[in-house]
Design a binder for these strands. Structure first.
Lengths: 197, 197
DNA sequence: GCTGTATCGCAGGTCGACTTGCGTTAACCG
DNA sequence: CGGTTAACGCAAGTCGACCTGCGATACAGC
């Protein structure tokens, strides 16, 4: 073997800078999240796996929370498309179904959990991710109103919150399953109401 | 001043045992929660304020989470009564209003936050508090069905989740306000539906 | 009243998040 | 292509959650 003369090459410290380091670390985070879960994704672990020093991570992202949020925001940016089938019920069904699937994902659950853990003291107000998605989904309702499928005075935000809220509650609080039956029941209840007709 | 002969009385370590210690610690937790918030309620702080050693707290409650959950469960046990006015809309309105008020409380928010922070790895499945409350609220819907106010095939759980879900989502995710307008809009939407009539 | 045992005090330690100071080098810029 | 600087490596340390062993005592049962 043609080894180096010096018995200990002293492992040249890999200083991956700038964008290269950023991508390496973020990729490692996403991978660790799906294999080790949120609890297993510690800053020290990420640093080791990405071949970067822990300090460098803290200097760039400030907190573990920022780190993971950054990785997930990049990863889940394209998720939750807004369907446009021409029928409100169908649009809501599809949107809720993909929302349920996202929430069932390890990454989705992690994003959810981290969005909740905000300090109540300082108004940090982050986690715009979910608020944004719900905001975007309002067009589904608006299109339904324009088509005459829904009452003219329908509040789009209210409808979206009413159908999506239970999914979040189940994922965060009760742990109850998120199946298609629930989604369909929710949509129909919100569209038709509970009054006898 | 008639001080004791010994210059340092060496502060006899107060060993409050059993129920006395339990009440002292839990009372301190509730107090600290409303004055210092969740982040300020650390085990060391509680121990000092209650005149108890940190180790004793860990031995009895295992985790900080258990400690606070125990204190809040005891404190909020009687909260969220189920109204029975004879009219579904009124019952739902009152229930949701008190739920919103509870959620706006420092203690309510703390209970919510802690109910979310469950490990996804081990199926610890706690936080039955909120699930229990929603479960109990189902009778409101059942009574409405019996009275003929609601369709016979109405799913009580679905209705309760649809009206309560958005409140939790706002408290946990979006931080949007919980006013009476929202509550009324939610109840009416769920009862009447969004379809034009 | 005396003893036995579970409970508590206390010292010391692990682990993860986060910080600071200082030396070193990669990367951009003229 | 040499110089400057911001980015990185590294050592050391703080803080809070949580654990362990050991000695001491409050309270129960006799």
């Amino acid at each position: 073997m043609h080894g180096p003369q010096s018995p200990e090459p002293a492992v040249p410290p890999l200083r991956r800078r700038g964008e290269r380091m950023r991508r390496a670390v973020l990729g490692t985070v996403v991978e660790l999240l799906s294999t080790q879960g949120l609890a297993g994704t510690t800053v020290a672990t990420v640093a080791r796996a990405a071949g970067v020093h822990e300090t460098s991570i803290y200097r760039r992202w400030r907190t573990r929370e920022n780190l993971i949020l950054d990785a997930l925001a990049t990863e889940l940016d394209a998720a939750l498309p807004i369907p446009d089938t021409g029928v409100v019920r169908e649009d809501l069904l599809r949107f809720l179904t993909s929302l349920g699937r996202l929430i069932a994902t390890a990454q989705g659950r992690a994003l959810l959990r981290l969005s909740v853990e905000r300090d109540e003291t300082l108004e940090d107000r982050r986690g715009p991710y979910w608020s944004d998605r719900l905001e975007r989904a309002k067009v589904i309702v608006r299109r339904g109103v324009e088509r005459g499928e829904l009452a003219a005075d329908t509040d789009p935000g209210l409808v979206i919150e009413a159908v999506a809220g239970p999914l979040f509650v189940r994922a965060l609080l009760s742990g109850a399953p998120l199946d298609d039956t629930l989604v369909a029941g929710l949509v129909d209840l919100t569209l038709e109401g509970a009054r006898p007709r």
